[in-house]
Amino acid sequence: MLAVLTDAMPQMVWSTRPDGFHDYYNARWYEFTGVPDGSTDGEEWNGMFHPDDQERAWARWRQSLETGEPYEIEYRLRHRSGAYRWTLGRALPVRDDAGAIVRWIGTCTDIDEAKRASEQNELLSLELAHRIKNIFAVIAGLIGINVRQNPEAREFATGLRQRIAALGRAHEFVRPHSEGSRPAIGRTTLRGLLADLFKPYPAMEDGAISIVGEDIVIDDKGATPFALLFHELATNTMKYGALSVPEGRVAVTMRIEGDRAVVDWKETGGPAIEAAPSRSGFGSRLSEVSVEAQLDGRLERAWEPDGLRVTATVPLANLARGDVA
């Protein structure tokens, strides 16, 4: 009955004894790998992995056997064609009534197409980021050329180049990232992150944006999602909101409530708001995904008559590793 059930599954299914000795594979495994029945029993399964992945897979499997932790890893598995395809390997222990492990049940799922598509998207993202950096560099260079021709504009040009450099740093936080390309900022504070993010905007220097309240520890774990949210808010308020008029103001207030960080963005003095927009733009939806999906938080918008209010509530543990209190 078990063989019939596992053979009907789209994944490769395998099983081991408590010590990790492989003694069962379903038909899908042999169909994918093309190896003879029984040839990957015991420890021979590791030879099916790409040579560069074998030690890593062994180490992860030994850790699960020693600790009883679920097994999960991505590796390249040799296909019957001879090519190696990216595969997601998972396994869970089966325990008896006393809690002792009596068997491991695992699956292998072919993720090669999704993995390669993700890698291609990452390359495109890196290429786009590189070109945008080059644009910033070209603009700064053109400013420098003009300053040499017009020395009286040196002070203005220096400030402008500083704003361009700050915009480039902000771009690093708000562009799409993989785990490998995410900026490594170390532990900092949300106040410091926001101050750096708002530097390109004259309103920050003019005092039209204030950042007050209880500061919050943050590192690269939470920096990019928060940067994406506040970059979107700052861009929109400059175009349509409070900072689109000289008398407009924005106040960012931070506080800690129990195990959560609460950050409030409040606009005042801008164009009167009669009603909430009938539809949300892509940037707004992306901000929601950043806070709610990536940080497991809650994002609330209130279109108050005197200006937009946005409140982000996020578990402290999702903003930085270790103690953040």
Rank of each mutant, 00 (worst) to 15 (best):
L2G: 15
F21R: 13
G248R: 10
E66G: 06
A312P: 07
E55P: 00
E205N: 06
A317D: 13
A261Q: 08
R76Q: 10
E152C: 10
A251G: 02
L5R: 09
E214N: 09
M204F: 14
D296G: 05
S64F: 02
T268K: 08
G89W: 04
G283W: 01
G258H: 03
E172M: 08
R279Q: 06
R80V: 06
Q63T: 06
P36H: 03
F156E: 13
E274D: 04
D53I: 02
H130S: 14
R301K: 11
P70S: 04
G307W: 03
I145A: 14
E152G: 13
Y240S: 11
G207P: 10
P315N: 04
D264V: 14
A195Q: 14
V324P: 05
D37K: 14
M48I: 03
V138Q: 12
S39V: 09
Y30V: 07
R85V: 00
G34K: 09
P277D: 02
A59G: 12
T253S: 15
L160H: 04
A302H: 07
Q54K: 12
L2P: 05
A98D: 09
D296W: 01
I211H: 12
F230G: 06
R285T: 14
Y30F: 14
L233Y: 05
E122H: 09
I216G: 13
I211G: 08
V262I: 04
T40Q: 14
H231D: 15
R321P: 00
L88G: 02
S15T: 10
A272H: 04
V262N: 01
T253E: 15
A153I: 13
A320I: 06
R301C: 00
M238I: 01
S118F: 03
T311Y: 03
V262D: 01
L299E: 10
E55S: 06
G222D: 06
T87F: 11
R90Y: 02
F226K: 04
D296F: 08
S125Y: 09
L243H: 10
V289F: 11
E292L: 03
G297N: 03
F49Q: 02
A165K: 00
A184C: 04
E247I: 03
L190M: 11
